[in-house]
Write a protein that binds this DNA or RNA. Structure first.
Lengths: 109, 109
DNA sequence: TTAAATTTGACACTTATTGTCAATAGAAAA
DNA sequence: TTTTCTATTGACAATAAGTGTCAAATTTAA
């Protein structure tokens, strides 16, 4: 999966809302499928409640959308939250990349 | 500040411990300067308690060490925590980078 | 205006995080 | 070894943060 197609401006919540509206499904129906309160799903789509990997995977199934792309968006949201308005955010991302690559290289033996 | 010199294997806690031991300062003295319990500082260095930006800045002052480098390490630790063992971590980092760059470009007008 | 959909806020509940402290363990010096 | 300094551990209560549930209020569409 490439990441180039993923928007730089859309959060995971917004994306999920777009997908739901694209399928013309009301919160009511989707929340029933997920077996959660309609208020919670509403808040998740608007970023007021935390999403979980589990919910994302279920929604990918419901909307017939690529799960990995949603998970990448989800993870990048969490990353964005950590670096927020920090000036050093970009540098921290570069260091994290180096560390991830290092870990990956360490694991494959 | 460049990030190339920052280790891919050292966490912020380990780094702070190295710095403290390099200066041969006991936890007791440093925690007194920070006005926190010695147990908390011990746990922070070993990653059992969360560090804060505030503490990091104070420690940079105490150890006479570059604050930005420590903050980058601190932020990258938090990022690493979010992506943990996720296969998609690296892709999420790339998306986050694009988003940060986009935000930066939006702000400068 | 009705009806459906969504949002909002209050609530009780659980879980996480916090600072404080004392006991334990470890290391180094005497 | 005994003493002393240092560091770690775990328990505790207090606070903060996150959770699901619900009903009322608002918005949207028919």
């Amino acid at each position: 999966m490439s990441t180039e197609s993923i928007s730089a401006t859309t959060s995971i919540g917004e994306k999920l809302r777009e997908l739901r509206e694209g399928k013309e499904l009301p919160l009511r129906k989707v929340s029933a499928l997920l077996d959660i309160d309609v208020a919670i799903l509403s808040k998740m789509e608007r970023g007021e409640r935390k999403l979980t990997k589990d919910i994302i995977l279920k929604l990918a199934g419901i909307y017939g959308y690529n799960a990995d792309e949603l998970l990448v968006l989800f993870l990048s949201d969490k990353i964005m939250y950590e670096i927020q308005d920090e000036d050093l955010g970009e540098k921290a991302l570069k260091v994290a990349e180096r560390r991830v690559k290092f870990l990956k290289a360490s694991k494959q033996k």
